[in-house]
Design a protein around this nucleic acid. Structure first.
Lengths: 220, 220
DNA sequence: TGGTGTGAATGCCTTCACAGCG
DNA sequence: CGCTGTGAAGGCATTCACACCA
């Protein structure tokens, strides 16, 4: 067991392996090598072994890993044997998409509350939760033991919401607003900017076009 | 001008700087230092300078960068002086969220088509586009000169959709389906797994709990 | 003086390569 | 013999630190 610091990317990939292992288990494939698992996830065999190596020894020389066994081990490592309560703040299109997404519950993430500032949305039923006023946030967060807050409000309100979540003592925040948040460092923040993900591709396209032009010039 | 290979992360951050510069320009702040810009984006001053250094020299010793000038330079570098046509495949909650998101157009990303396999959704109007049958995908992609395809369908259909997009000659794919896609390497794929982003936090929580237990044991 | 631009140093992550095991 | 586990090497990316400039 290597107890060095685990790279961030390793964690991300562990979830990818787990997803694949779940599929393999469903297909009744009992055993898999690092090479095959890598193939199926677009990663290298060495990467697979090194990632797993941070957490212990799971394989058998010559034959690979037991699908079911490795799956269980990863679930434990990743905290999927527990459940965590989640609140969504902002019930716009994205917030609604998250509320109705079916996969969270079975992955140990229970969305147990939703908040919005817009009076017209309050009281609406979205799946199993009722949209509450943002004023009820502090009370609900502690009553329902919510540890993850999801920010799905416009950029301008994001910091304000973050402050409320922090004060209410959530332990992590998933931020979809395109703005840099300031929070105490013990609170883990993960930023996801959907718009930027798309925009990033425009750099790729612009760059491609530039090199194309460069080649045209050289050949003429 | 440093012409080394530009790190992936630099591009991501360039978009963050641009966002901040746009805000600064709006506030009529004419000039900014790398330290201030870093402060506002939760990045280090050195990081800011190094990132910009890949593309040229934009600053003035002693006073910093001209907001407007740097903003324009970044827009050019990132390809935001051009527009790119985008198609959304899969008009579920997430697809709809993307279709109605207001920010894309002004950022040079025009969503000009949407496809779905569900007959009940075809013909529906979402903002300025009408949902088409997936069978019309090949024709529409080339007619409308679409270069980016967004996959917002369930994992099981994702590869099939990817194949169609590739055959129709899109240049990049933004994939929201939680599965590894196989595409020719000249096609740029960016994976975004919303569910995984949330799940990742459960590792953080589980790990926190584990260390807490460890400390309890030691002190008892 | 205040702040850029940039080599050099550091640190982190991935890939290599192979000993050792079943 | 096939495949894991893991030090060591290599490659990137970030941070440091300072010469140089307005």
């Amino acid at each position: 067991m290597n107890s060095k610091k685990v790279p961030e990317g390793t964690i991300t990939r562990l979830f990818i392996y787990l997803r694949e292992l779940t599929e393999l288990a469903r297909l009744n494939i009992r055993t898999i090598s690092s090479a095959e698992l890598g193939e199926r996830t677009n990663l290298s065999d060495a990467q697979v072994r090194k990632d797993l190596g941070y957490f212990g020894q799971f394989g058998t020389s010559g034959s690979g890993y037991q699908t079911e066994e490795l799956k269980n081990a990863l679930e434990k490592i990743l905290g999927k044997d527990k459940t965590w309560n989640v609140a969504i703040v902002g019930v716009g299109h994205l917030g609604s998409a998250l509320l109705t997404y079916p996969g969270f519950k079975e992955r140990g993430l229970n969305i147990v509350a939703a908040f919005d500032a817009d009076a017209r949305k309050i009281g609406k039923q979205a799946k199993e939760v009722t949209v509450q006023s943002i004023d009820e946030l502090p009370g609900t967060i502690s009553d329902k033991k919510i540890v993850i807050g999801v920010i799905a409000v416009p950029a301008k309100q994001a910091q304000e919401v973050a402050d409320k979540l922090v004060k209410a003592k959530v332990e992590c925040i998933l931020n979809f607003a395109p703005t840099a948040l300031t929070v105490p460092e013990q609170v883990k923040v993960k930023d996801v900017d959907l718009s930027r993900e798309l925009e990033t591709l425009s750099y790729f396209l612009a760059n491609k076009e530039r090199t194309r032009q460069l080649i045209d010039q050289q050949t003429s």
